[in-house]
Amino acid sequence: MDFYQFAKTVVFNVLKPIYRMEVIGKENFPAEGGILLCSNHIDNLDPPMVGICSPRPVNFMAKEELFKVPILKSILPKVHAFPVKRGLSDRQALRVAIDTLKDGQVVGLFPEGTRNKSGKLGKGFSGAGFFALRGNANVVPCAIIGPYKPFRKVKVVFGKPIDMEPYRETKAKAEEVTQVIMDHIQLLLNEHHPENK
Rank of each mutant, 00 (worst) to 15 (best):
D99Q: 15
V96A: 02
K73I: 14
R86P: 08
G87F: 12
A97T: 03
R95E: 10
D90F: 05
V79R: 04
G87H: 08
A97M: 04
L101Q: 05
S74K: 14
E65I: 05
L76Y: 04
K68Y: 11
I71D: 03
S74E: 11
K85R: 12
P70V: 14
L94R: 11
A81T: 08
F67C: 10
I98A: 05
A97L: 09
L76E: 01
D90E: 09
E65R: 12
L76K: 10
I71Y: 08
V79N: 00
G104V: 07
P83T: 11
R91M: 15
V79F: 02
A93S: 07
L76N: 07
L88A: 09
D90T: 05
F67S: 04
H80R: 15
S74M: 11
I71A: 13
K78I: 08
D99N: 13
H80Y: 12
R86V: 12
P70C: 15
L101K: 05
Q92G: 05
D90Y: 06
T100C: 11
L76H: 04
Q92I: 04
D103G: 06
K85G: 01
R86M: 14
A97G: 04
R91E: 08
V69S: 00
T100E: 04
S89M: 09
I71W: 12
V69P: 00
A97P: 03
R91K: 15
D99R: 15
R91I: 11
F82C: 13
L76A: 08
L101R: 01
V69K: 04
D90H: 05
L101A: 11
V84C: 01
K68V: 02
F82R: 02
L66N: 03
V84Q: 00
D99Y: 07
P83F: 06
V69C: 01
K68I: 06
S74A: 13
D99E: 15
L101S: 05
A97W: 01
F82V: 10
D103E: 14
V96Q: 03
D99P: 07
I71R: 06
L94G: 09
P77H: 08
L66K: 01
R95D: 10
P77G: 03
A93K: 00
K73D: 08
K68W: 09
S89D: 09
D103Y: 05
L88C: 02
I98M: 02
K78D: 07
I71T: 13
V84S: 00
D99T: 12
I71N: 02
V79Y: 00
R91L: 13
L72G: 04
R95M: 09
V96W: 01
F67K: 05
Q92S: 09
L88S: 04
Q92K: 11
K73L: 14
P70L: 13
T100M: 10
V79M: 00
L101N: 00
G104T: 12
L101F: 03
G87W: 15
Q92R: 06
